[in-house]
Design a protein around this nucleic acid. Sequence first.
DNA 1: CGAAATATACTACCATACAAAGACGCCCTC
DNA 2: GAGGGCGTCTTTGTATGGTAGTATATTTCG
Lengths: 236, 236
Amino acid sequence: MVVYFVTQRGGSSLDAIRVPSSGSAAQQVEAQLRRAIVTLALPPGTRLSEAEIAERHGVSRQPVREALIGLARTRLVEILPQRGTLVVRISVKKMMEARFVREAIETAVARRAATGFDPGARVRIDDLLDLQAKAAARGAHETFQRYDEMFHMALAEGAHCALAWEAIADIKAHMDRACHLTLKGSMLPLVEQHRAIMAAIDRGDGEAAAEAMREHLSEILRALPKVEAEHPDLFE
Amino acid sequence: MVVYFVTQRGGSSLDAIRVPSSGSAAQQVEAQLRRAIVTLALPPGTRLSEAEIAERHGVSRQPVREALIGLARTRLVEILPQRGTLVVRISVKKMMEARFVREAIETAVARRAATGFDPGARVRIDDLLDLQAKAAARGAHETFQRYDEMFHMALAEGAHCALAWEAIADIKAHMDRACHLTLKGSMLPLVEQHRAIMAAIDRGDGEAAAEAMREHLSEILRALPKVEAEHPDLFE
DNA sequence: CGAAATATACTACCATACAAAGACGCCCTC
DNA sequence: GAGGGCGTCTTTGTATGGTAGTATATTTCG
């Protein structure tokens, strides 16, 4: 039996983003499963039975089913009709494609951000970067990853293109698990890259911001071969 | 009562893409509803009752519910818990954001396509363009729009970035209805723009391909004000 | 002994029934 | 006559039973 545990309470205020205590049961189950998959508590290849998950979460099979459909839409799980549902393995090919698309979107966002940035989002980003630096310092890579997500979300919002974040969020699903593995290493350089991006934006240099973003998103390329070699069972 | 009709049969082989006769009932209902919404057979503001749709399609409420959840995920409908589900109005703001993100992705795809294109996809695109030109000539704008979709999908696939199409498909939902309205006008110039993009790709000129794509995707900007003025009730 | 046919157990999928919550109209009260 | 409280209706959300299809283990036949 697969054993995993996801704290619903005891988290910071950020839990409201990914694991809302409000919302339908289906949404809660989906958020919890998503986190469990991304953190590899549910490793690739795990069979997900509707009945088993329903029992574990204390709900019926129907909300669980809807949660799994939602996860299947972002390709985190694969539903085989009348056969079963399982956590998909990390695909290097899809990761490379996802990175390409994400780079296309985020460099454009960075370029636009340099032409005018929402003041409210700007100050929030400063707070986020400080919090992220602290998380990095104490090695809390899960918290770090959530702040990273919030940074990129705030960046899109600040550039007056919230829709960009929605597109990124779906794409990111293909990369998150591999990123989670690489974060075991040093996190502080990533914060510095974030700061470099914001510095370029602040001085209105769109090209520099885009280039800094490109550099930032290329980071995963360096770590990927090593991670893949260390965990061959997680990849397809 | 809202009356609409979507042909499940009588279509070309392309129906297999958006309205698969196979697949679960939920997927079929979702595809039919999506088409009805995009073609404005179900105009913005329409209330969508799970029970009513279920009866109309001869299935139970459950598959319909899953279909609506899928549509809500791409923001085509809005589900108000315990209150009702309705077709969202076209948002110019979101359309502009969607166009921005789409331009970011597709210009990058075009640029990459110029560095190497899948031969199989290349010949398929030629066939598509011919079919699209014919559809434009006889004024079949719905068929035209489907070929347009297939063109952009084949382009992403040919550039070895199928994932890009998935991202675009979600984003496109915000633009499709407005595009549907503008297609009442001339369609042939759009085919020529497609051909210009492919010509640039064929000669390996990435920058020209990207610029041609940017030009192509900017077309909607010219028509949008007129459409919005003519159909104010469709917009928010 | 091997291979094919069969029985069984499991799955997602669909249908139906029930529950909870907001919207609306009605009636009573001030 | 106007405003507030209450009951009813409609809506989505959830629970549960039943069905068809698939994989696996078992049995049976060559």
